[in-house]
Design a protein around this nucleic acid. Structure first.
Lengths: 211, 211
DNA sequence: TTATAAAATCTAGCAACGCTATATTTGATG
DNA sequence: CATCAAATATAGCGTTGCTAGATTTTATAA
């Protein structure tokens, strides 16, 4: 059979098409969620957006929740990159402040994306080995920030992450007024930098049990 | 008419019955949510639990979300009381640690309740005047904790609350392992107490813009 | 080039959801 | 006991996530 000649090209095209459509679905879900909320991201609506019938979606994702999980992972990837960028080129002041501000900026500029990233504890695999690399990468940015700090680097990373997440969530759900956000960041950074001196950058045990 | 005689008793009985049924609904919602998750708290299921048809539920609450809001408010009330208790009789160490531990204990022991308390930003009125008193009372426990502290008491309260909320959420959604929770609290308390000295308990401006 | 097998896609429908218009029953009042 | 209102139930609408089965499209062969 002359399969390996033309058939390969066909298979590649089909793969490309499939990947493109998958990206379309994720993109549509994100856009609708950001504009109209996640409750408007229905399977029917998505199938309309990509001009295919509903069952096609289930060839790409196991369920509606699978689509949200894919969006969430994309979000973690982008968050990780944003944090890395903020950490590496420390604009003004220290890296802690830079990362903290970048985190809250991310959460504020894509509230629906941020929301879905933390509302799917069961779908997005977690814990040790099965945690998606995008999640590990994002959290590693916090680890780098406090690396080698009095053997508490991991707890400090967790606490800084938790603090920022708390601020982001309480702001998103309107419990914190957006005003005074800068003051919050400044004070938070003070807490995390003044209490524990800037450490030398050696020894990073990295026994993170979390991510 | 001899209404004011027997009719009053009847009206009172009806009111009692109505309140009792309302409490039943809230209680059933809480129980099901804690045992089977909020997705299993359906109107049909609730109407089964209280042995009434569905429309009866709508005589008590405007919608399903109204029921969740009632549960959330009950949760805030209990949280506020738990925090007040922890703050007043400082078991060991300082009040900050006591309140922090009590907060996380509350969140861990009733995860579904805690979840609904922070997933209804739009239904539970917020912001300044319209915020339910149960919410204000709970947050006031944090304000008391840092009251009069270098004119930053409000921001510190917000940050401490946000940190605890972040820990609670990341723990609930399995991003933080439950192990090491004590160490987290200890370190967090260090950050909030060592960085800023215990202040004298005078002057509490109380210009809280949040709650 | 056309028949056939397989892959891709759609139609149509199920069960369950929140919610409500309407019918029915219950209970207080004369 | 009759009447009228209040309380409650029945039955159904529109929408949801999801899927079995029919149908079309596409690739491979004669």
């Amino acid at each position: 059979m002359a399969t390996t000649l033309a058939a390969n090209r066909i298979a590649e095209r089909k793969l490309r098409d499939k990947q493109a459509r998958r990206a379309q679905i994720i993109s549509a879900a994100r856009r609708i969620a950001e504009l109209e909320g996640w409750s408007n991201v229905t399977v029917r609506r998505l199938s309309d957006e990509i001009s295919y019938s509903q069952p096609v979606l289930y060839a790409h994702f196991e369920s509606r929740e699978g689509i949200l999980a894919a969006v969430a992972i994309e979000g973690f990837q982008e968050l990780g990159l944003a944090l890395e960028k903020a950490r590496k080129r420390v604009k003004r002041g220290n890296a802690v402040e830079s990362v903290g501000a970048a985190y809250l900026e991310f959460a504020a500029s894509s509230p629906a994306l941020y929301e879905v990233m933390f509302s799917l504890s069961l779908s997005v695999p977690f814990g040790e080995a099965a945690t998606p690399p995008e999640l590990r990468f994002a959290f590693s940015q916090f680890l780098e920030l406090f690396q080698g700090q009095s053997s508490k680097s991991e707890v400090l990373s967790e606490l800084f992450w938790a603090s920022l997440h708390g601020i982001a969530e309480l702001t998103r759900t309107k419990r914190f007024p957006r005003i005074r956000q800068k003051e919050r960041v400044r004070t938070l950074v003070e807490l995390f930098t003044s209490a524990l001196p800037p450490a030398s950058s050696t020894m990073f045990p990295r026994t993170s049990a979390l991510v």
